[in-house]
Each structure stands twice: as C-alpha cells, then as structure tokens.
C-alpha cells in the first residue's frame, strides 16, 4: 500500500512543481506551491502509517497495535500551519501588487535584471 500512497504524493508534488514553474498567474503559482506541500504531507503520513518506527526496529519490539508513533502526522500538521502563513503573506503581496500595477501576470513583474 505504501507504494500507492507514495505514487500519489509524487504525482501531486510534480504537478505542483510544474505548475509553480510554468503558470503565469501569480495566484496559480501560489496554489501550485500548496499542491507541492500537500504532496509532501501525503508522503509523511504514509511513511508514518506503514513504516516501522526506529526504536522498534533497533530494539526488536513487536510492532503491536498498542504502540502508535505519530511523528509523521505531527510533521504534516506543522507543514499545514506554515503553508497557511506562507499563503497569507503571498496574498498580501499580491494585493499590494494589484494596487500598484493592476496585474497578476508574473511575466509583467520584470522591473529588474535588464
């Protein structure tokens, strides 16, 4: 089962990466970075659910149902929270951009480097 979840996470991550690098609308770019982070979250939760925690592997404790280690899930929650902060910041900047230049097209954001 782990493979299927990982496949899903790779697909999500790659769609996000492709979109973030190719979309012209800045809001779409922000959405695509969210997609990448969600791909990461799927991988984290899948690893947490299907792989043996380290201390069990080293001490050869039986992986019984009573012991659940939620490291990956905890990590995923942190990722969600930080991603929300990132998007809030991004949208604030987009609003400033629309006010000053009336565009959301990244190819028009090119004052520098000429």
């Amino acid at each position: 089962m782990l493979e299927r979840y990982l496949l899903l996470s790779v697909i999500l991550f790659c769609i996000g990466l492709y979109g973030a690098l190719s979309r012209r609308n800045i809001i779409a770019v922000l959405i695509c970075t969210e997609l990448m982070l969600n791909g990461v979250n799927v991988a984290l939760v899948a690893f947490s659910r299907y792989s043996t925690p380290a201390f069990m592997r080293l001490t050869s404790v039986d992986a019984s149902d009573s012991v659940k280690v939620l490291d990956g899930q905890a990590f995923a929650i942190f990722v969600v929270v930080v991603a929300a902060a990132e998007v809030a910041l991004g949208l604030a900047l987009v609003i400033a951009l629309i006010r000053s230049r009336n565009t959301t097209d990244v190819t028009e954001i090119n004052l520098m480097g000429n």
Binding site: G16, L17, L21, L30, T33, M36, L37, V40, E86, G90
Partner: peptide, 10 residues
C-alpha cells in the same frame, strides 16, 4: 523571494 522560498521549502 516568497515564491522561490516556498518552492525550495517544498
């Protein structure tokens, strides 16, 4: 910087 740092964080 925001977009690049989001991609690199991912």
């Amino acid at each position: 910087f925001l977009v690049l740092s989001a991609i690199s964080s991912a």
